[in-house]
Design a protein around this nucleic acid. Structure first.
Lengths: 108, 108
DNA sequence: CTGTATCCAGTCCGATACTG
DNA sequence: CAGTATCGGACTGGATACAG
């Protein structure tokens, strides 16, 4: 997914939040922190690998914060950061748009 | 990119406008119609194959309209439809966010 | 509970050459 | 000008088993 980042902020952004799961993760975290398995349940169908990978990537970019409570059994919680929070309304618009789109398709 | 569309409108939407180029095409069409080669220039780096493919897909979903003028040499123009227009502000937000994100990364 | 390792599959994407 | 054909490569995503 390498692209002309420097010329186009949109391409740059999509490189970070694009991909199959990343926006979905941010979307589901908007309501507050979630634990690993809670998140997994919401993202119907995601595998451990993809969830872990995606979370790590989002963490690297500072979009997600990982909080580990020192307990046994382990208790880890994920939050979105302030900066990522700015994308939430956007994601909701896209979701809303998706609903309309689906209606259009079924209407035909 | 098959996913739990019916449960999650966001996933559904991303299935349509996700991918490497589709949002970028919509973004660049927001200013009005563009011809094939104009679009190609704006999307630095896109190949014929990908531009054509992406446009066809967007057309199928009713997000882009293709207008062919009967001339020689050919003259084809692409527009975004009203329904896709609703996504434009969203794309601008993401682009804006991308700018900030880049600053954050460079700042470190 | 929260992951990691390994290996594999499929999709997406692209370089190049060519066409009406 | 506006595309298509072909072939192949890269990369993303996944199944399964295992670990701290």
């Amino acid at each position: 997914m390498k692209n002309y980042y420097d010329d186009c902020p949109l391409a740059y952004a999509l490189n970070i939040i694009g991909g199959k799961w990343r926006m979905l993760i941010l979307y589901h975290l908007m309501g507050g922190g979630l634990r690993y398995n809670q998140l997994k349940k919401k993202l119907c169908g995601i595998t451990n690998i993809m969830l872990t990978r995606s979370l790590r990537e989002l963490e690297e970019y500072g979009l997600v914060k990982r909080i580990q409570h020192s307990e046994i059994p382990p208790h880890v919680e994920y939050f979105i950061t302030e900066h990522a929070e700015k994308l939430v309304p956007t994601l909701m618009v896209i979701a809303e748009w998706g609903k309309e789109q689906r209606l259009l398709e079924k209407g035909e």
